[in-house]
């Protein structure tokens, strides 16, 4: 039973690793990475969306041999990257309306098909507002028709660029400009929730995945796999927003990590409506650890902590853990 132990210090937890062979290294570790979203953009300090977009689009560029066109919904990502006449994008990029980016991408894919350019691939990208609310109809249509587009949603859980208004991705109890922490149920209400990844799965499309900016290697692997497929594909990336969440700019990745480790944001991938794999929790944490560093949840703590509300949020996390099997099986 001699087994060679392979151990690489930080393994694939870090962005790069000099101990791994070249082909096992990440796109982001490469000195020649595309930097699809270049320096000089006007995103806030520590923007999770800017980071997530570069991670995803660089990986898509790498996987498509740099033959990529992106359609981009209105939202932070569009506003901070392209104030006229400047652009941070180093790829062919088109700004759609707030709600129709899936349809615009469908059009580009159709045009490419007519032109016989099978080598050129199409992505559509938007924030949670443009995806889960305003663009939802177009997105569902794109799924249902199985158009050859990879749609990427950068989820920062509210309309950030217009001043932090609630979206259907805003979590319960969170403070936004439109869900103030006043009254008997302060912050956002406990609704039914709206998981667009699960809705996408219900369309039975070839590929659906979730990811966070805290796990680059996982994110890159998912984009790469999605790019190897044709038809409608959907990746939902969790991107903390320091400004809208009232968090320190240096905590962006930490918060994404805590969201995953608490079970509040399940990370998984699915093919044709079936879950194929989940990222297991490595060091489980209670939801308080994730909530506390964010001022949008500050009203839950302080002198009179809202134990009941915190318990309800914890119950959501526990349900995710059960539903997706996020914990390692105990070794007996």
């Amino acid at each position: 039973m001699d087994q060679t132990v392979k151990f690489y210090q930080t393994g694939t937890f870090t962005v790069g690793n000099r101990l791994l062979s070249e082909e096992n290294r990440s796109v982001q570790a490469n000195m020649q990475r595309t930097n699809s979203l270049n320096s000089g953009h006007r995103a806030c300090q520590g923007c999770g969306e800017a980071l997530g977009a570069r991670y995803a689009i660089d990986a898509a560029m790498n996987a498509s041999n740099n033959q990529l066109i992106a359609a981009n919904a209105t939202g932070c990502l569009e506003v901070f990257s392209t104030p006229y006449p400047e652009t941070s994008w180093q790829i062919p990029w088109i700004h759609s309306l707030f709600g129709n980016t899936a349809a615009v991408a469908t059009g580009i894919a159709a045009a490419l098909k007519v032109k016989g350019r099978r080598d050129v691939r199409v992505v559509a990208q938007g924030g949670d507002g443009g995806t889960t609310d305003i663009g939802f109809g177009c997105l569902s249509g794109m799924f249902e028709r199985n158009d050859d587009v990879l749609y990427i949603c950068y989820d920062n859980e509210a309309y950030m660029n217009t001043g932090v208004q609630r979206s259907s991705a805003t979590p319960p109890a969170a403070r936004t400009a439109t869900t103030m922490p006043v009254g008997p149920e302060p912050g956002n209400v406990f609704g039914q929730g709206k998981s667009v990844p699960l809705i996408a799965m219900a369309h039975g499309i070839p590929y659906v995945a979730t990811a966070t900016v805290a796990d680059l290697r996982d994110l890159e692997a998912k984009v790469k796999h999605a790019m190897s497929l044709n038809g409608a594909r959907y990746i939902h990336i969790f991107v903390p927003c320091p400004l809208g969440w009232g968090a320190a700019s240096h905590d962006t990745i930490r918060l994404a990590r805590l969201a995953r480790e608490s079970g509040l944001f399940p990370v998984f991938e699915a093919e044709f409506g079936e879950v194929k794999s989940v990222s297991k929790i490595r060091h489980r944490v209670p939801v308080e650890e994730y909530l506390k560093p964010q001022r949008r949840f500050a009203h839950l703590f302080g002198k009179n902590p809202a134990f009941e509300t915190i318990a309800r949020i914890q119950a959501t996390a526990d349900r995710n853990i059960r539903k997706f099997g996020l914990l390692e099986e105990a070794v007996s």
Binding site: V15, R18, S26, N38, S39
Partner: peptide, 14 residues
């Protein structure tokens, strides 16, 4: 030890 984390995690390619 050149893990590339700083190079990767910078939202500004700085």
């Amino acid at each position: 030890f050149e893990c590339d984390n700083c190079y990767g995690v910078c939202p500004d390619n700085a």
